[in-house]
Design a protein around this nucleic acid. Structure first.
Ligand code: SF4
Ligand code: SF4
Lengths: 157, 157
DNA sequence: TTGACTCGGACATGGGTTGTCCGGGTACGT
DNA sequence: ACGTACCCGGACAACCCATGTCCGAGTCAA
């Protein structure tokens, strides 16, 4: 899995409850990561419709909907793509005992198992929302930490 | 996911019920794939203890236990490794609002979600065995296909 | 003893993710 | 209305791991 997923998730969590647009550079400074590369991840989120980008001075990114309506799966798929991890090479159609193409209409047993496992993985990721994540960080490091961090992000130098 | 997983699974299926050792070169010829690269995957299976390799003339690979006792997850983990897909970079310990290391003893919410999803994925893969896969190919392409293929593999030129 | 065949780990190559850059565009301040 | 400064967006390289290959050590059969 792409490492940028972690960055994107952290950004979505800190964007929770933010009313003003936040520039990508400030998010990068907050997390101490490469600003340009983080920008790429945010662009992916923007393409997926999870965040809305406003340009010009005092621009930045804002969530398009409530944090309860954004699942972890949405973020993962936005950054890493919607393609399944396992892709069949159709090697059963090769070699001396090659199967006929019309026999390969329906996915074989191996592919079925992989698709089912992929579905279970995605379902598990869909069960948690960004708001849930924000709640866990409130329980882990204290309820006042997130608002203070958001205040630091909101102030413009 | 590594593409070699598909090759390894196919090899395990055709090895079902094989009593004589099968060389890697013959398996490669049967599937029409690179012999040397397939050998690498079989070596991984050997290291994981799923197959036993016998050397010398008339050597090859044999399953170490019954196909019912080998799950798809075993093969996947043998080839692709046991490491989880998501690895945390601990970026919460960086930046102006860095968390203290002692606060990071327990995994955060993001990591918990990822671990849970990974567990669900592996559990789904563990539910199916190689014997089940052999059964599905019997239902899909006919019950006599697999024995005939195995007979072709068993004969030595 | 000979021989030949097998596996095993060490060695190149390519595609993909990571990381970076500059141009188009927008909103603010004058 | 103009200038300006800022921000986003997609196009451009660098690094790394998966892919693919090779030859030597070991082993069994003859
Ligand atoms: S038999 Fe299944 S895994 Fe093998 S090539 Fe066909 S679809 Fe892919
Ligand atoms: S808060 Fe969670 S996801 Fe973020 S760096 Fe720490 S463990 Fe990783």
């Amino acid at each position: 899995m792409s490492g940028g997923v972690e960055w994107a998730l952290h950004c979505c969590v800190v964007l929770t409850g933010m009313t003003e647009p936040v520039p990508a550079a400030r998010l990068a400074e907050f997390h101490d990561v490469s600003p340009t590369y983080l920008a790429k991840q945010l662009q992916a989120l923007s393409r997926a419709g999870l965040v809305r980008s406003v340009q010009g001075q005092a621009g930045g990114y804002v969530l398009t909907r409530a944090a309860e309506e954004i699942s972890v799966l949405d973020v993962v798929e936005a950054v890493d793509g919607r393609a399944p991890a396992f892709v069949c090479t159709e090697i059963r159609q090769r070699g001396p005992f090659a199967a006929t193409p019309e026999a390969c209409r329906t996915p074989c047993g191996i592919t079925k198992v992989m698709i089912e496992a992929d579905r279970a993985w995605r379902e598990s990721l869909r069960a948690t929302s960004i708001a849930d994540l924000a709640g866990t960080v409130a329980r882990d490091v204290g309820a006042e930490t997130l608002p203070r961090a958001q205040a630091w992000i909101a102030q413009r130098d």
